[in-house]
Design a protein around this nucleic acid. Structure first.
Lengths: 133, 133
DNA sequence: CTATTTGCAAACACTTTGCACAGCA
DNA sequence: TGCTGTGCAAAGTGTTTGCAAATAG
């Protein structure tokens, strides 16, 4: 069988089951540690492999939260566009919406600011994609 | 002088000047390479140190774009809250707003989806902060 | 002279990969 | 057999740090 449709057994499912049971958006290592605590014999490498494959198949989502690796000279709040094809990041000339914060404050959070990133294709990459078709 | 108010010269300013001149949200290494190409004698460690200090002082902003280190079992689009004190991430029970995409599409981008993260203090950390005061 | 800044290399933290082997079809 | 999944250790990548030399005040 060329394409792996689904593993019926295996560690990957243990990782998925563990992730499905929690709402705290764990890192790979956090999942690994919990699984070990629960007696699961699994290696960290397998957890990484499982998460990557699950994310590629769209069975789990990933969040870019912690490591802020790109720098922006503009410190006033503004929004960004991230091109999924060329990986470039663009500043957007859109009004910042402080009213968005109100909604999450109603849920009990104290909001300092928010970050909004759109993902898709930039104009240049839309053009390139069109040519290939 | 205990507190460094401002360096009037030095590599840190070269890093800042270079960053101010561009809109492509470079990584530390990209800035380093450009500076070297321009003949600046600087080390990568200094670029990292400069960026960190500039970001801490709020003179530049950072963007968490690339490395998605946290995992979420919920794949339908939804928003998140990131607590700046305890670093936990919460799912928000807020309606996803596809209409936000329309605005950036007017700017010529083709939008697949967007990510919205609120930053601030979660209820528990608001409480803790209150007690300390 | 004292404090700060810098480069270098080493250390670090996180993630991926090569390889050998175990298990199943 | 042959393929997939796994653990381990090594390698890879990105970032920080210890230290000694350089520089500024």
């Amino acid at each position: 069988m060329k394409i792996m449709l689904r593993q019926e057994r295996g560690k990957r499912d243990r990782v998925l089951q563990e992730l499905l049971g929690r709402t705290d958006h764990p890192t790979a290592e956090e999942l690994y540690l919990t699984l070990r605590e629960k007696g699961e014999e699994i290696s960290l490498a397998t957890v990484y492999r499982a998460l990557r494959s699950l994310a590629e198949e769209g069975l789990v989502a990933t969040l870019p939260i912690a490591p802020a690796d790109r720098f922006d000279p503009t410190t006033r709040p503004h929004y960004h566009f991230h091109c999924l094809r060329c990986d470039r990041v663009f500043d957007l000339d859109l009004p910042y919406k402080p009213e968005l914060d109100r909604a999450s404050e109603k849920l009990g959070f104290s909001v300092y600011h928010h970050t909004l990133v759109f993902h898709g294709l930039c104009p240049a990459c839309q053009e390139k994609t069109r040519r290939v078709e």
